[in-house]
């Protein structure tokens, strides 16, 4: 398990990184924390001609506040994000999900951008970006563009990113103070990818759910935004909420698959249950008799 030979570059600016990516014509791979990439390189499942190390680009690190949202630099370490006061203050759902990513040691190297951009369908951070309505900023020599997280993922490890493109920031919109965090996952061992899991946020005004974002992970080829469940929940009165119907609607958007860790039917059944349990717990609802 030794990587195939590759060249190495450590650009100091986004522009320089974009130039290298462009010149490589698809033969480049970016490395930030390397927690997924290094095993892939060692297994020779990834064989880039050039490895572009983005750790030297100052602008890609850190957390900042902008108009109506929080911007997370893609090269921000997961462990730093977990401790970040701004994220803890404004995006508790993000922090909750992040605490389930990998292990203590891997989070010291792993980055937010790495997890978001890789697009592992059973991972927490892509689903978090989708659920919270994040916008993903992308740069290349051709210019910059911004893509909504819900439109970013195409399939397992497949995203809209072109080979010459680089994620330069992930912007999470603000959720009202005191919003409700929704999170639950079922994984065989701590740090494993989830058999099924969900993440989201909800704003409650009086008895009504004013705004909600919800996504499943491990339930299909991409993180799955629960469009139908969100529609049922938005504007719904908590006192008359049919949680089981919402849970059924949530799973209806999913397309889970069989693997040797769990069957698709298991994922559907348990996905529905954890969604129902999470909503009941979050909104203090009793199980209907």
């Amino acid at each position: 398990m030794k990587p195939a030979p590759f060249d190495y570059a450590k650009p100091a600016t986004v522009a320089e990184a974009c130039r290298i990516l462009s010149e490589a014509g698809g033969g480049a791979t970016m490395i930030a924390g390397g927690q997924t990439l290094m095993p892939l390189l060692n297994l020779r499942m990834s064989q880039p001609f050039i490895l572009v190390d983005i750790n030297g680009i100052a602008g890609l690190k850190g957390v900042s506040r902008g108009d109506g949202g929080t911007r997370v630099g893609p090269a921000t370490r997961q462990s730093e994000a977990l401790r970040d006061a701004t994220l803890n203050r404004h995006l508790p759902a993000f922090v909750k999900a992040l605490s389930h990513v990998g292990h203590y040691q891997t989070r010291n190297r792993g980055t937010i951008g790495g997890s978001v951009a890789l697009g592992e369908p059973a991972a927490e951070m892509p689903a978090t970006a989708v659920a919270l309505g994040a916008m993903i900023e992308i740069a290349s020599v051709r210019g910059t563009r911004t893509v909504a997280a819900k439109d970013f993922y195409l399939g397992p490890y497949m995203t809209v990113l072109e080979p010459d493109e680089l994620v330069t920031g992930i912007v999470y919109p603000d959720w009202a103070d005191g919003h409700v965090v929704l999170f639950r996952e079922v994984a065989q061992r701590p740090g494993d990818f989830a058999l099924t899991g969900l993440v989201g946020a909800a704003e409650v005004a009086g008895d009504r759910i004013a705004r909600v974002g919800l996504a499943f992970f491990g339930m299909g080829p991409t993180p799955i935004r629960m469009v139908q469940a969100e529609a049922l929940l938005t504007g719904a009165a908590l006192s008359s909420l049919d949680v089981d119907a919402v849970a059924a609607a949530g799973v209806a958007d999913c397309a889970p698959f069989d693997d040797h860790h769990a069957s698709a039917e298991y994922r559907r059944l348990v996905g529905k249950r954890i969604l129902a349990a999470t909503l009941r717990e979050a909104f203090n609802l009793k199980v209907a008799a």
Binding site: V186, Q188, D258, H260, A262, S263, A264, E265, Y266, L269
Partner: peptide, 19 residues
């Protein structure tokens, strides 16, 4: 005895997947 197999006993039906 994966979660799928154990849950299959609880549910009283084969939840599949172990092709």
């Amino acid at each position: 005895l994966t979660p799928t197999r154990v849950l299959g006993v609880i549910e009283g039906r084969d939840l599949g997947g172990h092709g």
